[in-house]
Design a protein around this nucleic acid. Structure first.
Lengths: 192, 192
DNA sequence: ACAATTAATAGACTTGCGTCCATAAACGCA
DNA sequence: TGCGTTTATGGACGCAAGTCTATTAATTGT
């Protein structure tokens, strides 16, 4: 199971990969995703072009992994604070996401756009990034049904799609994602 | 008010514009949005490159106008059939949209992606295409509140965002949009 | 030490987008 | 008919993405 380091050939430079991811995130947050070229990234990282393409197929793949590394590969917060109502937990979760998007909203929009151009990336993005977050909300809503905080007549999966959908829809159409919108979403789900 | 045709210079060829839009839609439906290049479009239309750029800034602008021409500039159906319940009208509306997306879903995904790369296009796309359809649903839900088919405690705007959001979310993540999903959405809104 | 293997590098290359330019064509006006 | 104006055309151009190639560097095994 525990395979050792492979025995042959020059090892890949972990440093190069790290530098590329750091350069990509830094440049993108400074100038915006679309304005950062591959040439910019490799120049900043001090690495050859092919070194990037040895690891990732596109800028989107690189950025996705960089975001993974930062955000934690699976979801941000597990959210299972038994002290608070599920309603409050959902609101806190959404506010946390929206706050995070103040810095990375542009990046997320760009990744969603990239996913529309490449089916392979779309699958990787969905299973690795989107789905875990969707499930967090679905699970939370299911927990809310146990004590009757949320009616059992509701479908947690569809409600989770409503929540993420509303958030994506607003993000992609250039609307602002703030605490007020988070409260409005939660209010509509749990009742005003 | 009623300005006449402008009196000076060579007139723009309506034929060229029509040919470009037709070529774009035809090629895209055949090969998919991403696989169609500008060169393909102008070759098929039998028109010079600059002629395209005299009318539109990008492929997305061209395609958006082509879709406008086909779909009707404002929304597909006005939906105000007093015989049926609002619930049925909403379901029929969604099924109609989803059916239409069997041919143009790829195009819509591409336009949404393009909107993430260009703020100007995003605004045009939103106000010209997205918002009218969002309003149709909002208005329908408001009408549903009058006879009490939908509780007045619900917020039609947020519900419309839920509906379009769920639909976008599924479309953009590669899920299938079929009649079953339309019914599931409507069921969650109006009650199973 | 040396061979085999794999990664890193620099740079050429291809393709597509969008711009620019010079020239020809189509119109109104005199 | 000629002039001014605007569009259409074809081709050159610059830029960025991604591929490919030859060369060099780092590592293991003998």
């Amino acid at each position: 199971m525990n395979e050792k380091k492979r025995p042959v050939g020059r090892p890949t430079s972990a440093e190069a990969g790290t530098a590329l991811k750091a350069a990509a995130l830094s440049l993108i947050r400074e100038k915006g995703y679309e304005k950062v070229s591959i040439a910019d990234i490799i120049r900043t990282a001090g690495v050859a072009r092919q070194t990037l393409y040895n690891r990732w197929n596109t800028k989107a793949d690189l950025v996705l992994e960089a975001v993974f590394d930062e955000t934690g590969r699976y979801a941000a917060e597990p959210i299972s604070d038994d002290d608070r109502t599920c309603r409050d937990q959902l609101e806190a979760f959404l506010i946390g996401v929206f706050t995070h998007l103040e810095t990375d909203g542009d990046t997320l929009r760009a990744l969603i756009a990239a996913a529309q151009r490449d089916a392979e990336f779309r699958a990787a993005f969905y299973t690795g990034f989107v789905l875990p977050r969707e499930r967090m909300v679905t699970d939370l809503l299911r927990r809310a049904q146990e004590p009757g905080e949320l009616s059992r007549a509701r479908d947690p999966e569809m409600l989770s799609a409503f929540i993420h959908g509303a958030f994506w829809y607003r993000l992609l159409n250039g609307g602002s994602l703030d605490a007020g919108y988070a409260r409005a979403i939660v209010g509509e789900i749990f009742g005003g």
